[in-house]
Amino acid sequence: MLRLKDFDAVTFDVYGTLIDWEPSIIAFLDAWAEKEGIKTRGAELLMAFDRARAEIQKERPAYLYPDVLRKCFDRIAVELDLSPDPVQREAFSATPHFWPAYSDTHDGLKILQRAAKVGALSNIDNASLASSCKNMNFTFDLVVTAERVGAYKPDWPHFNAAIADLQAQGIPKERILHVGQSLRADITPANKLGIRCAWINRPDRLLGLSGEGAAEAKPDLTLSSLAELVAAIS
């Protein structure tokens, strides 16, 4: 059993775990596909996005997240035999500022913050995360973004930076719990680094559940919501 008293810090993946991004991504891509007369919809477009995103985020030097979204949009367009639309590309790159938080995010984070440092380890740029923090109405004690470390999870720089920051505050790796929805980007690297982890498997959500390394993931605890996590470890 994982108990909150055994940890001094709880770090979170943000998008998919705390921010409910998939419906917004699907809605944007569906509207675009309909406008272009393309029949591909829903999960197919979402997984096309996931494939493109995983490949683009491996490239070094790393792109800022709005550029990742621009490149994803262009690759999806090519996959659908469409010419990239610069107006739609720019609109897609700005969507993170409007992605909503899950209904249990704010209360769950505030409860955890009473007992531990709460951090964000996110494959995002600083400006987009700032908007998401406003949408969550929450201020993290620790923030590690892709923009800060110049890399994207599942690469380890996010985790290494968080471990170093927390060690500087007297919190060893053994007292960190990492929480994520993505098996590929969060649970598998946490396993490899010896960080205990909880998988929030949000119902009907798909991103990060497949691809390189996902099948190897071994969470210490599996739940379906942040509220369930708080209840289980408190």
Results as ranks from 00 to 15, higher is better:
Ala116Gly: 02
Leu109Trp: 15
Ala127Pro: 13
Ala116Asp: 05
Val118Trp: 09
Gly108Trp: 07
Gln113Met: 09
Leu109Ser: 10
Tyr102Trp: 04
Asn123Tyr: 03
Val118Tyr: 04
Asp125Val: 02
Ala120Ile: 08
Ala127Ile: 14
Asn135Pro: 01
Pro100Lys: 08
Leu112Pro: 00
Asp125Cys: 08
Asp104Phe: 01
Asp107Glu: 15
Ser132Gln: 05
Lys134Thr: 04
Leu129Asn: 04
Gly119Pro: 03
Asp107Met: 12
Pro100His: 05
Gly119Met: 05
Asp107Phe: 06
Ile111Arg: 06
Ser103Lys: 15
Val118Thr: 08
Cys133Gln: 03
Ser103Tyr: 11
Arg114Phe: 02
Ala127Leu: 08
Gly108Leu: 05
Asn123Lys: 00
Lys110Met: 09
Ser131Lys: 06
Lys134Ile: 03
Met136Ile: 00
Tyr102Thr: 09
Ala127Gly: 04
Gly108His: 11
Thr105Met: 01
Asn135Gln: 00
Leu112Lys: 09
Gly119Asn: 03
Leu109Phe: 13
Asn135Cys: 00
Ala127Cys: 06
Lys117Ala: 09
Ala127Tyr: 15
Ile124Gly: 05
Ala120Glu: 11
Ala127Trp: 12
Cys133Tyr: 03
Ala127Thr: 13
Cys133Asn: 02
Tyr102Pro: 01
Ile124Asn: 10
Tyr102Ser: 07
Ser122Cys: 13
Asn123Gln: 02
Met136Phe: 01
His106Phe: 10
His106Trp: 06
Gly119Trp: 02
Tyr102Lys: 02
Ala120Trp: 07
Ile111Thr: 15
Ala101His: 07
Thr105Lys: 06
Gln113Ser: 08
Ala101Ser: 09
Gly108Glu: 13
Gln113Cys: 04
Leu121Ile: 05
Val118Ile: 10
Tyr102Glu: 04
Met136Val: 01
Ser132Met: 10
Ala115Arg: 06
Lys117Trp: 14
Trp99Asn: 13
Ser103Leu: 02
Ala120Pro: 12
Ala116Leu: 07
Pro100Asp: 10
Ser128Pro: 05
Tyr102Met: 02
Ala101Gln: 03
Ser131Met: 01
Arg114Gly: 15
Leu112Ala: 12
Ala115Asp: 14
Gln113Glu: 15
Ser128Val: 09
Lys134Leu: 02
Asp107Val: 15
Asn126Asp: 12
Leu112Gln: 14
Leu129Ile: 06
Ile124Tyr: 00
Ala127Glu: 15
Ala101Tyr: 08
Gly119Asp: 11
Ile111Pro: 00
Pro100Arg: 11
Ser131Trp: 07
Ser131Pro: 11
Met136Asn: 00
His106Gln: 14
Ala130Gln: 14
Ala101Lys: 06
Thr105Val: 06
Leu109Gln: 12
Lys117Met: 14
Ser128Thr: 12
Arg114Gln: 14
Leu112Met: 15
Leu109Pro: 06
Asp107Asn: 09
Asp107Leu: 08
Leu109Ala: 09
Ser128Trp: 11
Asp104Asn: 01
Ala115Ser: 11
Gly119Thr: 03
Ala115Ile: 07
Arg114Lys: 11
Asn123Pro: 04
Ile124Asp: 04
Met136Tyr: 00
Lys134Cys: 00
Ala101Gly: 11
Trp99Ala: 12
Leu129Val: 07
Ala130Asp: 15
Thr105Ala: 04
Ser132Tyr: 00
Gly119Cys: 05
Leu109Lys: 03
Lys117Gln: 08
Asn126Ala: 11
Ser122Pro: 13
Gly119Phe: 01
Ile124Met: 02
Ala130Ser: 07
Gln113Asn: 10
